[in-house]
Deep mutational scan, measured.
Amino acid sequence: QSFTCPYCGKMGYTETSLQEHVTSEHAETSTEVICPICAALPGGDPNHVTDDFAAHLTLEHR
């Protein structure tokens, strides 16, 4: 399964590499985005909106 960065649209990330990408490239970004990992999880929330995606990844998807 691969994920797309909700900020810049780059594709092909794993859960881990998406977290690394967001932390390095978009750490200061506070735009509201939908978490693509939550959306892909069975029973996950397809509409989970977060305005601190880097922190959300760290808390929810480590």
Rank of each mutant, 00 (worst) to 15 (best):
L18W: 00
S17C: 00
T50F: 11
G12F: 02
D45T: 10
V33F: 02
H61E: 02
V22K: 02
E32K: 15
G12T: 03
C5F: 00
N47P: 15
T4M: 14
E60M: 10
V33K: 05
E15F: 06
E25S: 10
L18N: 11
D45M: 06
E15R: 04
A40I: 09
C35E: 03
A27W: 06
A55I: 01
P6C: 01
N47L: 08
S24V: 13
P6A: 03
E25Q: 07
D45F: 04
T29G: 08
T16N: 10
T29F: 07
T50D: 02
C5S: 00
T14L: 10
S30L: 07
A39D: 10
Y7D: 11
C38T: 03
P6Q: 01
P46V: 05
C8Q: 00
P46N: 14
G43N: 12
E60K: 12
Y13L: 14
L18P: 04
R62V: 11
L59N: 14
L18F: 09
Y7Q: 13
T31I: 12
Q19H: 05
A55Q: 09
K10L: 12
H61D: 01
H61R: 01
T50H: 06
S17F: 11
C8W: 00
H26A: 03
D51V: 12
H26V: 05
E20H: 06
F53P: 04
A40W: 03
T29R: 08
E60S: 06
A39F: 03
L18S: 06
S30P: 04
A55F: 04
G44H: 15
L57D: 01
A54N: 13
G9E: 13
P6E: 02
I34P: 13
Y7V: 14
C35Q: 04
D45W: 06
T29I: 09
E32N: 09
Y7P: 03
G44W: 04
H56M: 00
P42V: 09
L59A: 15
H21T: 05
H26N: 06
A54E: 05
C5V: 00
Y13S: 05
Y7C: 12
P46G: 05
T23P: 15
G43W: 09
Y7F: 13
L18K: 06
G12H: 01
P36K: 03
A55G: 12
L18Y: 15
S2R: 10
L18C: 00
S2E: 07
F3D: 03
E25L: 11
L57S: 06
P42I: 12
F53K: 05
G43C: 07
C38Y: 03
A39K: 15
D51T: 14
S17I: 06
I37R: 04
H26L: 05
E25H: 09
H21Q: 05
F53W: 02
T16S: 12
E25T: 11
G44P: 10
V49T: 12
T50W: 11
I37A: 02
G44T: 15
E25A: 10
R62F: 05
A39I: 08
E20I: 03
A27Q: 08
Y7H: 03
P46Y: 09
T58V: 11
T50Y: 04
H56G: 02
H48A: 15
V49M: 12
H26T: 11
A55D: 06
A27N: 13
M11K: 07
A39V: 03
H61A: 02
D45H: 10
V49H: 12
D45N: 11
P46R: 09
E20A: 10
E20D: 08
E60Y: 06
E20P: 10
E60R: 04
I34F: 01
V22E: 03
G9Q: 09
S30Q: 12
Y13E: 05
H56V: 00
V22G: 07
T4S: 13
S2L: 10
A55N: 15
E15D: 13
L41D: 15
F53Q: 07
T16I: 09
L59K: 14
E25W: 06
F3K: 01
E15A: 07
T58G: 07
G44R: 14
E20T: 06
V33N: 05
Y13K: 04
V49C: 09
E25M: 07
A27S: 09
A27C: 09
I37L: 11
G12E: 04
A54H: 07
A54W: 02
V49G: 07
T58D: 08
A39N: 10
D45I: 06
H48S: 11
H56I: 01
K10Q: 07
Q19V: 10
E60D: 13
F53N: 02
T29M: 12
K10V: 07
E60Q: 13
E60V: 13
T50E: 09
D51N: 15
E60N: 07
T50S: 09
T58L: 11
L57R: 03
E25K: 10
L57T: 03
C38M: 02
V33D: 10
S2F: 04
E32S: 14
V22C: 15
C5E: 00
H56D: 05
C38P: 13
Q19A: 15
E20Y: 04
H48E: 14
S24C: 13
T23C: 04
D51S: 15
T29C: 12
H61F: 00
P6I: 01
V33M: 03
H21W: 01
K10P: 00
L41M: 15
C35A: 02
G12S: 05
D51P: 15
G12W: 02
G9I: 04
S30T: 15
T58P: 03
A55T: 14
T23V: 13
T29A: 14
T31Y: 10
T4N: 12
C5N: 00
H56F: 00
A39H: 08
A40S: 13
N47G: 14
H21A: 04
L59C: 07
L57W: 03
V22D: 12
N47K: 15
C5T: 00
T16M: 08
G44M: 04
C38Q: 07
E60A: 11
H26C: 05
T16W: 05
C8F: 00
C38D: 04
A54P: 09
T31V: 14
E15H: 00
S30A: 04
C8T: 00
T14D: 08
T4G: 04
S2A: 13
I34V: 13
F53M: 02
A54C: 07
L18A: 05
